[in-house]
Design a protein around this nucleic acid. Sequence first.
DNA 1: CGGATTGTTCGACGAACTTCGTACACTCCT
DNA 2: AGGAGTGTACGAAGTTCGTCGAACAATCCG
Lengths: 105, 105
Amino acid sequence: MAASAPEHIHPREVPLATALAALADPVRLTLVRELAAAEDWERPCGSFDVPVRKAALSHHFAVLRQVGLLEQRDRGQRRYNRLRRPEFDERFPGLLDLALRTDLD
Amino acid sequence: MAASAPEHIHPREVPLATALAALADPVRLTLVRELAAAEDWERPCGSFDVPVRKAALSHHFAVLRQVGLLEQRDRGQRRYNRLRRPEFDERFPGLLDLALRTDLD
DNA sequence: CGGATTGTTCGACGAACTTCGTACACTCCT
DNA sequence: AGGAGTGTACGAAGTTCGTCGAACAATCCG
């Protein structure tokens, strides 16, 4: 699995422009939407349907982590994911709701 | 003034990711905020306090126009600006409000 | 008309972003 | 111990983005 434990930061410390840039990407938007449709800790990194290889996928997960939207936890040989929805909503009200609206694509 | 009349498109035709990308830039964020603080048609393009030359400034205005957030109108030798706030809010509820919150920077 | 003002367009440059392949780290299972 | 499975780190390549200077267009004014 991963070489190092993932570092998490709180959405509080994230500038608005950084959060917008993180969500302004089709791959990351897909990740966020699939995560929102699943239970917390249900999905390991490799279980997402996106058209990039695992190196790029790992990068996108890092971006989402660095805006405080994603939390990761290692269990066994996999890294499981969870959306930090309450924390992110508190900092950027309505933004995640907007990102989940597939009718706006 | 301008070489061609500005072309406007409605926010309805703008994908979410494009709108997010347009607002994920510090210069454009400044433009939007100064516009929000002014009356409609009050500010010509050259009246904004941003650290870029006019070529770059023109580019940023074009980006905002192409996401349906900015409307421009020529009068005399100047091009005046207005935020298309109701239209944009209808398409992306809450997004502009978020962009105007300087406490999130 | 001629000059000043305002903003766009064009071509170019550097920085940043995205992706990839490969190598490595960690865990589970036999 | 060894092998398979999962994800990260690193370096390289290609693309996109933001910026600039210079040239151009349109308007106003003397």
